[in-house]
Design a binder for these strands. Structure first.
Lengths: 245, 245
DNA sequence: TGCGGCTAATTGTCTATACAATAAATTCCT
DNA sequence: AGGAATTTATTGTATAGACAATTAGCCGCA
């Protein structure tokens, strides 16, 4: 049970917002980890010299955002970031496939430390030649290939990726543990499989494939870039959302 | 300036939640339209016999959800649902294309009242043969085709669609006015263009195309079903979001 | 008419307090 | 020991009151 030190406000803007920023910073920096318990509202309001309602609003909104989990009498905890949002149900195959009752399989084809090519460097906002861990792997459901994953991890931010060993587990799970709280950006497009891709995915050359590109950020820095390719006819992804914004 | 009548609470659950439901119901039902002004917090708290903080929380959360817009001194208004969420930037081409500085073009190819085919009926949760307005149209940017839209509108819910006339304006804009507040569900997939689709989109047969299917709901009922097809190489869509949930 | 300043309506935030709901922890009883 | 009852820490909601911030609308003046 980790001891959580007091946080400090920065004096900018509304107090509830300062509290939100301070708590978020602790979580994003990794000082507070998933499962850690926060001080109670009473403790926080005393140590920050604010009303409990103000602390309550801050923690309530962070809970809305999914950053915290709260249980009456038990307390407030840093959330486990294990339920990827909306579109991304598709992204972590290691979880999505068993969830549909299929058996999940994983094959690692490449796991190397490489210098960034110009194209990847640009996508990751890095200078060409920056050190990256490059992983290529396949995800299968009941033996059928459902996703080809190409991934580049920024070793400057996550040096551990070079020794992680992605031969039995995909990068998705490891990243979730190593850098749990991030932002992501997605791009979806369709391409015809070229000879190489067709061979890897086990489809006819020219077959339509769905490509999902994902960049994961910590602040302004790109932590990892992934290109996830799906045989078109075999996969689709669904998202449902409430009111417009 | 429409006069807004008092709303009523239902006594179930927290008061702020009752207020949220009551306001949402007014908006979803169309009784309060985009741009309408709500009573002030002071008025509402008096007429509902609750504290202003409670009303404030309800309206603040609905504003978070994008249902309302608030301006100091001016008041609280039903939001204009004109900024489609995340993924859907791609959906309303009539807005997305000018926003990128390109000139937008529209061609209507079909606008008929038809009975629902079995496949469409299933997708729209309707009995086969139900009356639908069926529209097929093209969206262009700087003269190039960027989207082929096939749309079916449930005439039982929106009888006006039969007389709307989609020859100069796409169904997107009309629907936004006719049924502004809804929920939507999206599915993305990739297909190879068949001969017919290739001809319509002006691409080679077999070219990979991105297909976005969209079902729009009012409660449990499907208001409209759309299949939006994009020439793969020419289009992609991007979404960025903050912390996981 | 147009501009500048004033007024006041409205939302935004903060506080202090109170009580309800929940469920973990403890005590008590057998 | 184990189960039931009780205690209590913690969050959840509601309230009344206060002041700050914003700005639409009005008034006066040139």
């Amino acid at each position: 049970m980790p001891q959580i030190e007091a946080i400090e406000l920065d004096g900018h803007g509304p107090v509830y917002d300062q509290i939100k920023r301070a708590v978020t910073a602790q979580i994003r920096s990794g000082a507070w980890k998933p499962g850690d318990r926060l001080p109670s509202e009473a403790d926080l309001s005393q140590s920050l010299a604010t009303a409990r309602m103000t602390v309550n609003r801050a923690l309530r909104e962070l809970t809305e955002d999914g950053l915290l989990v709260r249980r009456r009498r038990a307390g407030t905890f840093v959330a486990q970031p294990d339920a990827p949002a909306a579109l991304l149900k598709i992204v972590d195959m290691a979880k999505a496939i068993p969830a549909r009752g299929q058996t999940y399989g994983y094959v690692c084809e490449t796991d190397d430390t490489v210098p960034a090519s110009p194209a990847i460097a640009k996508a990751m906002r890095l200078p060409p030649g920056a050190r990256l861990q490059h992983v290529e792997c396949l995800h299968t459901a009941d033996g059928e290939i459902v996703e080809f994953e190409e991934r580049w991890i920024n070793l400057a931010l996550l040096p551990g990726a070079a020794q992680a060993g992605f031969d039995t587990e995909g990068p998705g799970g490891w990243l979730l543990r190593a850098a749990p709280w991030t932002e992501a950006e997605h791009t979806v497009s369709a391409v015809n499989a070229d000879a190489d891709l067709a061979r890897r995915l086990g489809v006819e050359p020219g077959a339509a494939c769905l490509v999902l590109e994902r960049r994961t950020f910590q602040g302004q820095d790109v932590v990892t870039y992934a290109r996830l390719t799906h045989p078109g006819s075999r996969h689709s992804m669904t998202e449902r959302f409430s009111p417009q914004r």
